[in-house]
Computed example of a mutant assay.
Amino acid sequence: MSAEETAPPVTAFLLIKTMPEWLAMTPEERVHAFGTEVMSVVKARTTGVRSRFYDTEFYSTRVTDVWVWEADDHEAYQLLIDALRETPFWDRYFEVVDLLVGTENGYARTYNVDPVATVST
């Protein structure tokens, strides 16, 4: 299968809100808990996933953070969500407000057209 024929990665935007238990920890305790209780499980149970974390609490009270995950395929994404649900991340440290999942430029592949995107100058 050529690069053009491979399935596009799955991108998931996890809209989350911090919970009181998370906020009661010191920053050092949060970093430790996230590494040992959340990310260690994700790393042990998944492959083909990458993430970025965005703070939004400066502008929103409903969603305090957005965790963007890119998975190589739907199976990798499902394993990721299963792993997260088995950690204190899910509904203990954070409330998952919403999950927005998609593939970049899906319409362009469907209709065989060039994607519409802006280019930085």
Rank of each mutant, 00 (worst) to 15 (best):
R45F: 02
Y111V: 01
T61P: 02
V42W: 03
H74F: 10
R52Y: 10
M1Y: 15
H74R: 10
S2F: 08
R30L: 05
V42H: 00
D91F: 03
E28C: 04
V113F: 00
S40F: 02
A3F: 15
F89K: 01
M39D: 02
A117D: 10
L79C: 09
L14Q: 08
T6K: 15
R109W: 04
Q78P: 06
L99P: 01
M19Q: 15
A12N: 11
V10P: 03
F94Q: 04
F34Q: 02
T46Y: 02
W67C: 05
T87C: 08
R92V: 07
V42Q: 03
F58A: 14
V68L: 11
R30F: 08
V63L: 05
G106M: 07
D91L: 07
P115T: 11
E29Q: 14
S120D: 09
V68E: 06
L80S: 00
S2H: 12
E75D: 13
I81P: 04
T118C: 10
E28W: 09
V113D: 00
T118W: 14
A71C: 07
W22C: 06
P88D: 01
V49K: 05
E5H: 15
L14F: 13
R45Y: 10
T36R: 14
T47S: 14
A83Y: 01
T110G: 01
E5V: 14
E5S: 15
S51L: 03
V38Q: 07
L99A: 08
T56I: 03
R109D: 01
F89S: 03
W22K: 14
A12P: 08
P8G: 13
T118E: 10
A83H: 01
E104W: 09
A12H: 05
Y111F: 08
A76L: 07
F34A: 03
A7N: 14
K17Q: 13
L23A: 12
I16E: 09
D55E: 09
M1L: 14
M25P: 11
G102M: 06
T64E: 02
F53Y: 09
T87D: 04
D73G: 08
L14E: 06
I81M: 06
R45C: 07
E95Y: 01
V41G: 00
T11F: 12
V63Q: 02
V31H: 14
G102Y: 00
E37H: 07
V68S: 05
R92A: 08
T6N: 15
L14W: 06
